[in-house]
Design a protein around this nucleic acid. Structure first.
Lengths: 239, 239
DNA sequence: GTCTATAGGTGGATAGAC
DNA sequence: GTCTATCCACCTATAGAC
């Protein structure tokens, strides 16, 4: 490594590979810190000052690189959601290409939807918080955040709804949509609580990692999807 | 009604019955407004000023009646969660009293858990927001809110886990706990999105009320609970 | 119990030097 | 690109008159 002649901020790290997290670009450090802090304290509950403190950068750097807190939040999501949904669509494409006229098997479709969330948590241990972040975001009342989610989810929802409907014939589209929501809900909710599952279960649940979640969720959802369509107004009391 | 001789704040409304919402006690008006505003804007995102503005009371009244924002939040929850879980336990008690040695039927237990949420939304149209509020709260990263939820849910979780395990023998407790979380997740998540389900589904889902949710969710969860236990590490790719 | 007034603090955002 | 310094809007909470 050449001696440092003259201070050129941010220039020295570009030619290094495998640089420690503390020396990455300011812009990325902000994004990582923001993700961590948002997951821990929520969006309204996390101040930009706490993010810059965690990232070891200046407060003004956030506004320089991202413009505003809102745009920072959107950037945090875009980085995770885009690859996640791309992977889901890729897996579904593969399944449909290999399947015959009848389309892919139900369990395979469900697996294609759920398995990609593993990558969110397993790539990097420091990114485990992401799963909590996504869980929060989807229940967030904020209009902008919800719109971002809906737009990111639109194509995935449409494609998987079609694949599921084909795999479980004779189920009304409305019923299938409800069940798709149930699957998303079971996944998101359990992901969100994953950090606290052991406490929540009183020790029954020991390994609350995302991989276990997927493992347990796939058979549950597969069976649920195959349930007969609901009937009546639901007000009956089964005894 | 007697003419108003002298201003005695809050005294006149006590002998009236069926008074309009604007004239109820300040304390209740605050609670109702807080619930509405929290559901709409989140906890950190909602200021006490916006609550008092909505309720038509003074800012200081919140601190007089509830002490602090934190305690107000807890009061909002306690009013809804306590009856909800009491109703669940009552239904489960009834089921177990009427069932034989083998314990109540699986679907009946699931129904006992899910049906009480109907009361949250159907009693009063202005309370529909409650379902969104509860959904938010359970994913909230705030330590205090989460602890409140865990403590409120403790007995219900224990009792229903036992009942479910008895209704579906030969399923390991850990597996059953995962599935209980899946049920809660599917319920909470769909409740949270219920206000936006029509938009989310692109028109497929027209009636997104809580009653429909329960109707559709019961058979889904019942089938999921009966699924064979998961095996392996979940990393296989079913094709 | 209800109000005004204000303390005391923190938030996001920006201007301008370097 | 990075930093200091600062603006100003807004927050929770409280003191004290009525």
């Amino acid at each position: 490594m050449p001696e440092r002649a003259g201070y050129r901020p941010g220039a020295g790290v570009q030619d290094a590979e495998g640089e420690p997290p503390q020396q990455r670009d300011t812009k990325d450090r902000i994004l990582d810190a923001a993700e961590r802090m948002f997951a821990q304290g929520g969006f309204h509950g996390t101040s930009l000052r706490s993010i810059t403190g965690e990232a070891g950068v200046n407060l003004a750097a956030i506004h320089y690189h991202y413009g505003s807190k809102d745009e920072l939040i959107q950037a945090v999501f875009a980085r995770r959601l885009a690859p996640l949904n791309r992977e889901r669509l890729r897996l579904l494409d593969d399944l449909e290409a290999r399947a015959g006229e009848a389309g892919p098997d139900l369990e395979a479709v469900i697996h294609a939807f759920l398995a990609p969330v593993r990558r969110l948590a397993d790539d990097d241990s420091s990114r485990r918080v992401v799963v909590s972040l996504l869980g929060q975001a989807i229940t967030q009342p904020d209009e902008k955040i919800r719109r971002l989610f809906i737009s990111q989810f639109a194509e995935v929802g449409r494609r998987f709804l079609a694949a599921l409907t084909r795999a479980v014939p004779h189920l009304p589209p409305e019923e299938m949509f409800w069940r798709l929501m149930f699957m998303v809900g079971a996944m998101v909710h359990t992901m969100t609580l994953s950090q606290h599952l052991e406490e929540f279960s009183g020790g029954i649940c020991r390994s609350a990692d995302v991989s276990s979640l997927v493992t347990h969720l796939v058979p549950f959802v597969t069976a649920g999807m195959r349930a007969p369509a609901s009937d009546g107004d639901g007000s009956r009391e089964p005894v």
